[in-house]
Write a protein that binds this DNA or RNA. Structure first.
Length: 496
RNA sequence: GGCGCGUUCGUCUAGAGGCCCAGGACACCGCCCUCUCAAGGCGGAGAUCAAGGGUUCGAAUCCCUUACGCGCUACCA
């Protein structure tokens, strides 16, 4: 029987743990939760799961929020914005977990465990050696009253473990995967409260999902195996569990879980690399979900309107950097000149040598249409436009001599250009092109050769935006100056 | 080892019994356009739908088995 998806009072959450920088997988999970909330007119909540004091990374929470900000994924409750279900940092809710755990202790749904780490380690090694079932052996679950008293009197460290039912089965109706069943005898007595007084993920997540009235838990598939624990805990606490949906994982090119070792995995790195926020979001929406059989470029509102868990895939997906790059190019081409200029300006200011700065926005505005369909990453703009800002070109004069030409013909070509450009009435690309085409024919050079020489002289490069538009933007003085210098250098090269 | 999930072109995917000897996109190749580089247009190659058994008049779609991949198996999340 297919479970009906709740659509009223939708409250979903993104629950990052600040133990590292936010990566692609985390953010895709956040995105899907956000889309689901927006589609159903519900709330999207951010809750920081900072229960692991040893692995806390300073600044990680800020990085997560910054990534969400960058991608324009707004949260309705959580850090910075607050909300009626706070606090939204689990480290500030310790008393809540402790109280619930004590309650479980009283009702014998939980027990104190005094096992040392050494004992647990030995136990695990023995289990591995004997290839028997892994998991806690319930040593402390079976302690007598006296033994327990003795342990308490001794005053050593202890943890609180959940007493999992020894028989029966736990069933989840996953909204994406369907029914999944686990035999309870295979679950072990997991820890609720660690010896430092902090809850484990399981304790905290179950408590807060209930207290914050989370309606759907949407998380990566790696959490599926811990779902029966959560269901059991909800039941022990007398709570109605939320609905679950386990999202397919995002894998690296080697098909293993995406991680640092796959290189660019941190979301903010993509911003630095020149990806547009809109493109990354669009791309991520398409890993694990599709609108139909052909639509790929979609506005956020289109996706929100059409998002549904029924169209979420079950199979894990490999992160395709090439396709993301293509999509980024598509987005760049859709940008207005103003918008592109605004996005490229800070990149140039950062990437160009300081002596060529500052970049004049008006000048940039004239350059931008020439590069718009030639860059895939915003950062490509630096290499593509540097000659517009460069004060002195630097190139091997031999490159002025195009294929099939010799020193003399290159010299004549440059002289002809010099004459034409000096005499041109309007320094605009159309008349320039006409005049120069004629000049090429007169010299008996192909356009490829003639314009090739001029291109190197005017830009120092072999591949540039269209030559005539480029020269128009550079302006007569600068182009003539560069040609003069090219002639000079070509002459010097001969005498060498 | 145990448990769980998954399996359609290299990659992202469409497909919910006949519309599919499988459609779209990225990447790749060719042609066109062309002053270079792109963009764009057109075309091509690329999947015996993991394999094998069923069910059915008919299966990528339903069932079973196997294989492979991945995840979990911490006082990490």
């Amino acid at each position: 029987m297919q479970k009906i998806i709740r659509t009223d009072n939708v409250r979903v959450r993104f629950a990052p743990s600040p133990t590292g920088l936010p990566h692609i997988g985390n953010i895709r999970t956040a995105l899907f939760n956000w889309l689901f909330a927006r589609h159903h007119g519900g709330k999207f909540i951010v809750r920081v799961e900072d229960t692991d004091q040893d692995r806390l990374v300073p600044g990680a929470t800020d990085a997560v929020l910054e990534a969400l900000d960058w991608l324009d994924i707004q949260w309705d409750e959580g850090p910075r914005v607050g909300g009626p279900y706070g606090p939204y940092f689990q480290s500030q809710r310790l008393d809540i977990y402790q109280k619930l755990a004590d309650d479980l202790l009283d009702r014998e749904w939980a027990y104190r465990c005094y096992c040392s780490e050494a004992r647990l380690k030995d136990m695990r090694e023995a289990q591995a050696r004997e290839k028997s079932q892994t998991g806690y052996d319930r040593h402390c679950r079976n302690l007598s009253k006296d033994e327990r008293r003795a342990q308490e009197a001794y005053g050593g460290k202890s943890v609180i473990r959940f007493a999992v039912p020894l028989s029966g089965a736990t069933v989840v109706e996953d909204l994406i995967r369907g029914q999944v069943v686990w035999q309870n005898e295979l679950l072990d007595d997991f820890i609720l409260i660690k010896s430092d007084g902090f809850p484990t993920y399981h304790m905290a997540v179950v408590t807060d999902d209930h207290l914050m009235e989370i309606s759907h838990v949407m998380r990566a598939e790696e959490w599926l195996p811990s779902t029966p624990r959560h269901l059991q805990l909800h039941q022990a606490l007398g709570q109605e569990p939320p609905q679950f949906a386990h999202l397919p994982m995002i894998l690296g090119p080697d098909r293993s879980k995406l991680s640092k070792r796959h290189g660019a995995t941190f979301v903010l790195d993509y911003r630095d690399q020149g990806f547009m926020q809109e493109a990354l979001v669009n791309f991520l929406e398409l890993v694990g979900w599709s609108l139909d059989d052909h639509t790929e470029i979609m506005t956020p509102s289109t996706v929100i309107e059409n998002f549904s868990l029924e169209r979420v895939n079950k199979a894990a997906a490999i992160f395709d950097y090439e396709k993301l790059t293509w999509m980024n190019g598509m987005y760049i081409r859709q940008l207005s000149e103003e918008d592109l200029a605004d996005r490229v300006l800070p990149i140039l200011e950062k990437g160009l040598p300081s002596e060529w700065l500052p970049v004049d926005r008006g000048y940039l505005l004239r350059i931008v249409p020439l590069i718009r369909e030639r860059i895939k990453l915003l950062t490509d703009a630096t290499d593509m436009t540097d000659f517009f800002f460069q004060t002195d070109l630097d190139f091997d004069p031999k490159r002025l001599i195009q294929k099939g030409m010799d020193h003399q013909s290159a010299m004549s070509a440059l002289a002809a250009c010099q004459a034409e450009l000096t005499n041109a009435e309007a320094f605009e690309h159309e008349p320039l092109e006409q005049a120069l085409r004629a000049a090429a024919t007169e010299l008996g050079l192909t356009h490829r050769q003639f314009f090739g020489t001029l291109r190197v002289a005017a830009t120092g490069k072999d591949a540039t935006p269209p030559l005539f538009e480029t020269m128009e933007v550079l302006g007569r003085d600068r182009v003539l100056d560069r040609i003069r210098q090219a002639i000079q250098r070509l002459g010097d090269a001969e005498t060498d």
